[in-house]
Design a binder for these strands. Structure first.
Lengths: 251, 251
DNA sequence: GAGGCGGCTTCCACTGGGTGGAAGAATGAC
DNA sequence: GTCATTCTTCCACCCAGTGGAAGCCGCCTC
């Protein structure tokens, strides 16, 4: 009656991970049926595994009964390597206080930037990044700051692909982008204007530890205020240097 | 040769979760042997499962080869219900800017407070809380603010247990603690002085949504500066009210 | 209120992924 | 060199996992 039609070669662990992987920024909560479809598991299997995950609070239920990531996983996530974030936070804070603008910290992961911290005030601003979110490198300030200090082979590999173009102002021509990166490296910071989102522009500086780009610090504002960007470069560079120094010294 | 001595009645999922659960604030990185011992699994089983988790980046390796929670789990954790944190963050920010002190946000989970956000500057201060960390309720400002607005049966149950006493100044006598909670409820905020950590004192206000304590906002300073606490109560209450209003309005 | 529909829960006989002791490899301390 | 500790690999047995099917529940439509 049952059990015969199993998919061979698939571990239970991979199914558990498929369930967890079904959640992402665009799908933070799912019905059981969606969860089964997105994870590629039969409904009854998804049901059984999700129930056990829910019992452990790895998953929890939204008020409407849909499943979402549970508090326990959030807690666990806080144990992930975060020393950079902790060291950098006071500097983000200081930069925010002295400029009043949105400030964020990102690292490279694969071919994308991953935002690891963000400081923002009540002055509402269009959201361009989300802590835990990912964006491609070439249209973002932090991405360009990081890419400009990566090794040649990496940059070549990055440029060799077809690049996304989220707005008409995104630079995707390999030659032009390479020249842009050269100037970012020369001047020590990157500027963008509506390359990721229409309506916002940014400045970003890499945090270099032993010559390697460990992270990047970025500041974002409405593109109506582009002219103010240049005024923000100096405090931005100072904060980036502060974080770099904090990283170099163990204490 | 093998396989016969399995422990029956234990699911694979429970073993995967036991591996994840082996990590906590006191043990953020573990050798494989430690991991096996803490999760109660045979070494070879821990090895096999940990390897699969590592492949998915649910776990990663510290430079010294020990295992720790991976970036992917951190990312997942960011998808956990966090609207409260996001709504509240600008207010934490504002409170930090106007006072320059350490500010944090906590919710109740079970019989403990769970710290969900924290804003701090460069002025180094003794760490009393950690985002993702837990502390008992009765010795902390945020804990008392939350407990004071819980229902009677809950408070009675809380007080009925033997209470931890992290410092000699911690209040653990049920009668005295109950009176303390009554006054916290009456005045709308809680104060502590060296009840959790010698050397620090705090003020905290509950964030009441529909009369239920949804979270608490706390501010911590060195106990040499206790006298300044009273000056901070007003901005603290204003920020708490701001968060409460933001929670009440969907937008 | 009958009928249909979509999503959730339970059931159960078959079977291959999980198992863990043991042996072997790698590393480090003395 | 020896000894101790930790990590990795191996493999034959067998039970936890499996998933199709049937049943259930709430909701909408006619």
């Amino acid at each position: 009656m049952a059990g015969g039609q199993r998919e061979p070669g698939r571990t239970v662990t991979s199914k558990v991970l498929a369930i967890l992987g079904a959640f992402d920024a665009a799908h933070p909560q799912l019905t059981l049926t969606d969860l089964a479809r997105r994870s590629g598991l039969p409904l009854s299997t998804a049901h059984r595994l999700a129930a056990e995950l829910e019992r452990w609070q790895a998953l929890s239920r939204a008020p409407d009964g849909r499943l979402r990531v549970g508090l326990r996983l959030w807690e666990l996530g806080q144990l992930a390597p975060g020393s950079l974030r902790e060291l950098a936070h006071p500097w983000l804070q200081e930069l925010f206080v002295s400029t009043g603008e949105n400030v964020h910290l990102a690292v490279r992961d694969g071919l994308e930037v991953l935002y690891v911290d963000k400081v923002y005030g009540r002055r509402a601003v269009p959201i361009v990044s989300r802590v835990g979110g990912r964006l491609p490198m070439h249209p973002t300030g932090v991405g360009k700051a990081l890419l400009a200090h990566e090794e040649d082979w990496f940059v070549r590999a990055y440029l060799a692909r077809e690049l996304e173009r989220p707005t008409p102002r995104t630079i995707i021509e390999p030659g032009r982008l390479a020249r842009e990166l050269a100037s970012v490296r020369a001047q020590g910071y990157a500027l963008t204007c509506e390359e990721m989102t229409l309506g916002s522009c940014s400045a970003a500086a890499p945090i270099l530890v032993d010559g390697r780009p460990a992270a990047a610090l970025g500041i974002v504002l409405s593109s109506r205020r582009v002219r103010e960007l240049s005024r923000l470069v100096e405090p931005l560079l100072a904060a980036a240097a502060g974080v770099a120094a904090a990283c170099a010294n163990p204490q």
